[in-house]
């Protein structure tokens, strides 16, 4: 039985296979409409989410399966003090696969230690978010046709932005990748990712506070939201939330084939006037999230 807790649980070959399956689902959706008939996905969301939960549920429904679960901790036994381990063991009696989001880092890993069914990490605090990374990778592959020879700008909250952490881990395994890490000083990438991933693997990167300076070099610009829920101090959030706002005007110096990604939801960091720019890929990216999750569910359930 396989779980997906960290994007590095998947080899690059397995990622290629998932991207290939997802692309086939996009091209031939009917072929997959009954693949998970009779199977149930439990979505255990201890923290609010719209697109991740709905895309998981839509993915399972489009595979012909069923869904059950909860969308906030207050409507689960966690509000009565039940442990993650116990909740997982109980839900494993009712479902064939579990997608879990939890505000505590490492919660899905704890779940996987006791679970009788596959666990998918649907986001654990500011730590990892591997299915968003699969979504990002599918989008990058569909836009660029490759995972190598890319300069990727990551902009915004790089400290608590779990999608950024997982994406860096995933892309660091490919050749000739360069990262431009754009953030306020207070929201820089954590030291463990700098040291253990970038420095250790000799990956080219630069840390900067200036988006405009590096924008012309980028093949991909990955914007992120400054997440209010990650701050203990409201004043810090207010001071940092509008650090970067991408507008159509600012894109004047960018490459014509730049791909702008964002895990969504956005607040102010991408102006709506960018939405009609052909370089804006974030709504396509949201659609891709369903297809890659369909491929992942099939893989973990070992559905042919």
């Amino acid at each position: 039985m396989r779980h997906l807790i960290d994007i590095l649980d998947l080899s690059t070959e397995e990622i290629d296979e998932l991207v290939s399956t997802a692309s086939d689902i996009i091209a031939n959706p009917k072929k997959y409409s009954e693949k998970c008939h009779g199977k149930k996905l439990a979505t255990l969301f201890f923290e609010p989410s719209t697109r991740t939960r709905l895309s998981f549920e839509a993915a399972m429904l489009e595979l012909g399966g069923n869904v059950l679960g909860f969308s906030e901790a207050s409507s689960s036994s966690a509000s009565k003090g039940e442990s993650v381990s116990d909740t997982t063991r109980v839900v494993g009696c009712y479902a064939d696969i579990i997608a879990m989001r939890h505000p505590k880092e490492g919660a899905p890993m704890v779940a996987s230690l006791k679970s009788s069914v596959p666990i998918i990490n649907a986001g654990d605090g500011g730590h990892n978010h591997p299915t968003q990374t699969l979504t990002d990778l599918l989008t990058i592959h569909r836009e660029k046709g490759r995972f190598h020879d890319l300069t990727i700008g990551l902009c915004g909250d790089l400290k608590f932005g779990r999608t950024v952490h997982s994406l860096i881990l995933a892309l660091s395994r490919y050749q000739n990748i360069r990262f431009v890490l754009i953030s306020p000083d207070e929201l820089k990438l954590p030291d463990y990712l700098i040291q253990d991933t970038l420095v250790k693997n000799n990956i080219s990167f630069v840390e900067t506070t200036d988006l405009q300076e590096y924008l012309p070099e980028l093949d991909i610009l990955y914007m992120t939201r400054v997440q209010q829920e990650r701050f203990f101090n409201e004043a810090d959030y207010i001071r940092l939330k509008d650090s970067y706002v991408l507008t159509r005007e600012k894109l004047a110096d960018a490459k014509e084939d730049l791909s702008i990604l964002h895990p969504l939801p956005r607040v102010n960091e991408i102006s709506v006037d960018v939405d009609d720019d052909p370089r804006a890929c974030y709504f396509k990216q949201a659609a891709n999230g369903k297809y890659i999750r369909m491929a992942l569910i099939m893989k973990l359930l070992e559905v042919e």
Binding site: S83, V84, S85, H102, P103, K104, E105, G106, A107, M109, V110, D124, G125, G126, H127, Y192, Q195, D196, K200
Partner: peptide, 21 residues
């Protein structure tokens, strides 16, 4: 010591640290 870590709330959990460097 990370207050956001699951080990801060999950009962009966083993505190495991791995050598990374």
């Amino acid at each position: 010591k990370n207050p956001r870590c699951i080990t801060s709330v999950e009962p009966g959990i083993q505190h495991i640290f791995k050598l990374t460097d």
